[in-house]
Computed example of a mutant assay.
Amino acid sequence: MVGPHPEIVVRAPDGIGEIEAGCDLAAVLVEALVRAYGDDALRDGDVLVVTSKVVSKAEGRVVEGDREAWVDAETVRPVARRGPTRIVRNRLGLIMAAAGVDASNVAAGSAVLLPLDPDASARALRARVHELAGVTVGVVVTDTAGRAWREGQTDIAIGAAGLEVLSSFAGRLDAHGNELAVTAPAVADEIASAVELAQGKLGARPCGILRGRADLVLPLEDDGPGAGALIRPEGGDLFGWGAREAVVRAVAASPSDLAPFGAPVPAEDLVDALGRAGLGAARRLDADADADVLVVDDARADAVRAVAFAHGWTCEDAAGGSGIRLRRATT
């Protein structure tokens, strides 16, 4: 693999007006880039970065009506809530505030929804740019998102085409000979944030070019996995529910809420969790050869049920003399 260029250049042109539904977005962006930077506006190996808002506007995703109703429509399930702020998993699988529904920079009473398929939008832009300018670029469609453990927001890739979105360093050695096991830079997100620095939140610059990482750009016939490859599957996130929401969902124990907690844990992990919760010792049911059945004696059934549910186990009964029987859930 060719290594990264020693210099990375980021450009974001001015002069892009309001985007209307049905416009040739790629043509508008290429024209703005050529007007700003001339013949050197686009090269093979550049990465074109475009905000999801202008993609959505071009695709007719501006809607009228109550914003909260549109948040509901775009939501698959809630994740966390703090006052009026709702963090949800939306129909694209993204964990975002308000499902990514944006009411800024549009007429009052309107809102902008995320593109129906951001990866498909990126692929269409890539093909059209090649048609117009004769260059092979990578494309990233971005949106702004918060982070679970840090203040502030950054831009992330919600759509991508023709780009290696995730670099794997697993198996490589560092300078001291240590093997890297899990290092995997999300380069599409890094590119999104780097270009946002040039765009600015109030700069009216909805696109930009990053130059210097042609090693990440794929051949024209290969659109790559898209930004969807960066989304963890349901149950694959260690924080599928917010801290308070997790308690509520575990106590309610609705089967439809089980998946975000992740795959059922081994029996020994549940035994450990019950012990840490002060709920007494669990034992295997002697009369049952099934290794996935546990019995907890002399404990509060409601608390045992909640802890078990959060770990992928269900409570079968709570008969006084026979203890509380737990069985690994099946999905």
Rank of each mutant, 00 (worst) to 15 (best):
A170S: 11
R244Y: 14
H176N: 12
R147L: 12
G203T: 06
L220I: 10
P185R: 12
T154F: 12
R67Y: 02
R67L: 07
S193A: 12
A246G: 07
G17V: 14
D215M: 10
A111P: 04
T75M: 08
E20A: 15
A301Q: 09
L180V: 06
V248I: 12
V2E: 05
W241H: 02
R43G: 04
L274G: 02
D14N: 14
A124T: 14
A58W: 01
L94N: 05
G177I: 10
P115Q: 08
A99P: 03
R89F: 01
L197V: 14
A161I: 02
K57E: 07
Q153L: 14
A107T: 13
A161L: 07
G177S: 06
A259Y: 02
P264D: 14
E18C: 04
A250V: 07
R82H: 04
D223P: 04
L230Y: 11
D155L: 15
A198I: 10
A186I: 12
R284K: 10
R67N: 02
A41S: 04
D298Y: 01
V88K: 00
N105D: 15
E164C: 08
L202V: 05
D222V: 15
V54C: 09
G262H: 06
A194P: 03
A273S: 15
A198G: 08
A36W: 08
G262R: 09
E190L: 13
V165E: 01
T136L: 01
V129F: 03
I8E: 08
A289V: 10
E234D: 07
D72H: 02
L29W: 03
D317R: 04
L270P: 11
D39K: 10
H5E: 13
A267T: 09
A303W: 08
E31P: 00
A273L: 13
P115K: 09
V165S: 01
E164F: 05
K53S: 13
F169G: 04
E131S: 13
V135H: 03
D237P: 03
M96E: 02
C207W: 11
R67Q: 08
R300C: 05
D46Y: 04
S121A: 13
R61F: 08
R81D: 00
V140F: 06
G208L: 06
F261L: 01
A287S: 13
P78L: 06
D44F: 00
A127K: 14
L114H: 08
D290Q: 00
E268A: 15
A308R: 01
E268I: 15
Q199V: 08
P185M: 05
L238Y: 15
N90F: 00
A277N: 00
P13C: 13
I158N: 05
H130D: 13
R128G: 00
A122V: 14
S193F: 03
A181P: 04
D155T: 15
G171P: 05
P233R: 08
L180R: 10
A80P: 06
S56V: 07
L25R: 05
I324R: 09
R276F: 09
K201G: 04
V63F: 11
L202D: 11
V307G: 00
R244P: 04
D290E: 01
A145Y: 10
K57T: 07
L114V: 11
R67K: 09
A111E: 12
V187Y: 05
A287N: 14
K57I: 00
V304G: 00
S52Y: 06
G45W: 06
A287I: 15
